[in-house]
């Protein structure tokens, strides 16, 4: 799992929130690595911990109510141990962040140019004029055809797609080696989404940055990801290269999820429905297979006591052994489909 090419290595990361004087882990024992020039997608439904994972990596979590253990290794430093000041040197410089809703993520009272230049002010020794030039360059880079005008505009004067391009320009301003994109296209129309995804992909091959893409949309994953980690209830339950995941998913959760996409079905078919509900953070079973309650027909004894990730094919990891016994209605035999 760990090679010299790794840009970022996450080891046994646990992020817990304090609720009524008790800590509850929203991200539990997550180990992942990001390589240069790859898109690692982290997929899951709301509450699975994917956004918490993203904010923990950049240290943007609320420090008062949050406890972080484990390691996030970048350039021989452990990010979880950094002081705020040390972190500020990385954020906006080595690590860029793209948010879901570009309208609320941009300061409504500041001109676009000023917002992009802001990071440069703290990370570089550029003069004011050089910063302005760099802003225009960045706007050009994200495909904005009239950068001079846009730099002087305010966020509300731009369309949704333009705003997200501006957000990407902000993320790129420090020439980062890692970009974390948290649902970057969820708030956009499909045609704009396609444009933004294409842009991200081409910028990546230009800059060779590693991108962590947080999303709930499997379609987006299929379009841009190189590797995928599926999260459920705070844990990574399956990790695989993208083609492997869509062709050969093993974990019952991943398979059910893939099967509930309307596209995969004949119009008259029923969509796959997962039994039960996602447990809330406070009611999470902390022992055994977390998905067992959603597949009650699989005998308790077929789950592992302490489910681990098993490498079942090169680069393909699945948590627990219950997948071997899982099959959809009408499917033949066990899960070795």
């Amino acid at each position: 799992m760990n090679t010299a090419k790794d840009l970022l290595t996450i080891r046994n990361l646990t992020t817990s929130f304090r609720i009524k004087d008790e800590y509850h882990a929203a991200v539990e024992e997550v180990s992942l690595s990001l390589r240069k020039n790859e898109v690692l997608a982290i997929v899951g439904e709301s509450g699975c911990g994917k956004s918490t994972l993203a904010t923990t990596i950049v240290g943007l979590h609320n420090e008062i109510n949050t406890k972080v253990t484990g390691e996030i290794l970048y350039n021989n430093q452990n990010l979880t141990q950094l002081s705020e000041e040390q972190f500020n040197r990385l954020r906006g410089n080595d690590i860029g962040f793209i948010f879901q809703d570009p309208l609320s993520a941009l300061n409504p009272l500041m001109r676009i140019g000023e917002q992009i230049a802001e990071g440069l002010l703290y990370h570089t020794k550029l003069t004011k004029q050089q910063r302005e030039e760099r802003v225009l360059e960045l706007l050009n880079q994200v495909g904005i055809s009239n950068p001079n005008r846009v730099a002087r505009q305010f966020p509300h004067q731009l369309s949704g797609g333009m705003r997200q391009r501006v957000m990407i320009a902000i993320a790129l301003s420090g020439k980062p080696s890692i970009i974390i994109a948290d649902e970057p296209t969820t708030a956009l129309d499909v045609t704009i989404q396609a444009q933004i995804l294409d842009l991200l992909k081409s910028l990546q091959s230009e800059t060779e940055a590693g991108i962590i893409l947080i999303t709930h949309d499997l379609g987006v994953v299929a379009e841009v990801a190189d590797r995928v980690a599926v999260m459920y209830a705070g844990q990574v339950i399956e990790e695989a290269p993208v083609q492997e995941l869509f062709r050969n998913a093993k974990h019952p959760y991943t398979r059910s999820l893939l099967n509930s996409i309307p596209q995969t079905h004949d119009e008259n078919d029923k969509l796959e429905v997962i039994h039960g509900m996602v447990p809330s953070l406070m009611n999470l079973p902390r022992e055994g297979c977390r998905f067992s309650a959603r597949i009650p027909w699989i005998n308790e004894s077929l789950h592992e006591k302490k489910p681990q990730l098993h490498e079942i094919a090169p680069g393909h990891f699945v948590r627990c052994t219950c997948w071997k016994h899982f099959h959809f209605e009408g499917e033949e035999g066990g899960g070795t489909v």
Binding site: V190, A194, D217, G219, A222, F246, L258, I261
Partner: peptide, 9 residues
């Protein structure tokens, strides 16, 4: 043509 498809291939 803009709809993402779940076939990475």
């Amino acid at each position: 043509s803009a709809i993402p498809n779940i076939e990475p291939e």
